[in-house]
């Protein structure tokens, strides 16, 4: 299973004469098969971090290393990337979008079966032949989630994959993701604004602030977890406490606390 080592990653952007440290000396070990949740204020560099791991951006300095056990790899292998926006090709139906994602995947079952079962998983069984423009925002996001899952990836990068969903669908999909992980754990970076979601799903929760990692919280509770349980509430309180302490409150925090649950 894929292990990732991030060493002193730095990335600055210059926009309108202003220098933004999007990644400010990020070092992190992502353990094989773990789900690492990343939380932090809007603009703290979560998406930038995922893009670097996916190889879409190059760091100014620092290194990214990929391993299978102790064997160094050239890259992360097969990626399932749920972008922050759905990024479905508008000229292809949902089915064809997933089919394209399976193009370089040696699938054991017939692609058709895989696509239909993944679509059923995210509740889009009836929408295989719909065009992205015919989907609601939440449906498009679920289609994008299905596209990443159907690839049976070595690395899952999920950027607020459940952000646009209603509370019920979101809870449902959180449980599905937890269930899938019990059967087939994949090394995963999972960005979310919802601390409850983070502690429910994650093996570890990373708190980012202004391009840096300010805290890593271990969530050692075994699966299946009780989302309303006391243990989880304690972990959640600790994470929130760290955020309050480590990250100075700004207006940006409104977004973080807009999803209390």
């Amino acid at each position: 299973m894929l292990r990732i080592v991030l060493e002193n990653l730095k990335k600055t952007y210059v926009t309108g004469g202003e220098t933004i440290r999007a990644l400010n000396d990020v070092s992190l070990n992502v353990r094989p098969g773990e789900l690492l949740a990343i939380v932090g204020y809007s603009g703290c560099g979560k998406t930038t971090l995922l893009r670097h791991v996916a190889g879409l951006d190059r760091p100014d300095s620092g290194a990214l290393r990929f391993f299978d056990g102790e064997t160094p790899l050239n890259g992360p292998g097969r990626i399932g990337y749920v972008f922050q926006e759905p990024r479905l090709l508008p000229w292809k139906t949902v089915y064809r979008n997933l089919e394209l994602a399976l193009r370089h995947v040696d699938v054991s079952a017939a692609p058709d079966r895989i696509i239909h079962s993944v679509l059923a998983l995210v509740g889009l069984a009836a929408f295989a032949d719909a065009y992205p423009a015919e989907l609601s925002g939440g449906m498009a996001q679920r289609a994008s989630l299905a596209r990443a899952l159907c690839r049976d990836p070595d690395l899952l990068l999920m950027d607020e994959p459940l952000g646009a969903l209603d509370a019920l669908t979101r809870t449902h999909l959180q449980m599905e993701i937890a269930a899938i992980r019990q059967v087939r754990p994949v090394t995963t970076l999972f960005v979310t604004h919802d601390v409850s979601e983070a502690v429910y799903l994650a093996d570890r929760v990373v708190v980012m602030d202004r391009g840096g990692i300010v805290h890593v919280e271990d969530v050692t509770l075994p699966y299946p977890r009780d989302p309303a349980g006391v243990e989880l509430a304690e972990v959640k309180a600790r994470v929130l406490d760290t955020i309050m302490r480590e990250c100075p409150l700004t207006l940006a925090s409104i977004r973080l606390f807009a999803n209390p649950s």
Binding site: A54, G55, L56, R78, Y81, F83, R87, L89, L100, H104
Partner: peptide, 16 residues
């Protein structure tokens, strides 16, 4: 460009 990036994460060739 976002679609091109998406294609890149799917490992598509230039032709694809």
């Amino acid at each position: 460009r976002r679609f091109v990036e998406m294609g890149q994460t799917l490992g598509l060739t230039t032709g694809e």
